[in-house]
Amino acid sequence: MKIKITLLFLFFLFCINLRGNAQSVEIVKWDYIENLMNQKSDTLYVINFWATWCAPCVKELPYFDRLAAENKSAKLKVILISLDFKKQLESRIIPFVKEKNIQSKVVVLDEPNYNSWIDKVNPEWSGAIPATLIVGGTTTTPLFFEKEFIFTELNEIVKPLIK
């Protein structure tokens, strides 16, 4: 009986913990990115294309979270666009986001015909990830990077672009 109560209590704690950290992860279509690219507000959007299976992406994810955390009161939004297979949303993507305690907004892009939209993000993009697009803020044209960032470099690029 005691064990049962303990287990119940642990389960209760576990549920609270889940509620505390979990962010919802939406599945989005191309128009979501198009809207971000066309937005006319002062907010600087740092949009990172990644996947749970991409080791260099996973390595740099904390830097994007840190960037957002260090600029909490600034007009800056970090959006992490997962290119994982959408059917792995519950089995892989959400557990990954929880385990890594990712705070930035995560969405899964469901546009399997890659060739139809890669050039719209940037014609220079080969399709390899990680890749990062920066729009809004003080930028006049979107900035695009097909590379893995370290924090200092990302920070140096982003800081002057915040309005």
Binding site: F49, W53, N115, I118, W125, S126, G127, A128, I129, P130
Partner: peptide, 9 residues
């Protein structure tokens, strides 16, 4: 010529 999402080399 086409593009796709893939892993970096």
């Amino acid at each position: 010529f086409t593009k796709a999402i893939g892993c970096t080399i």
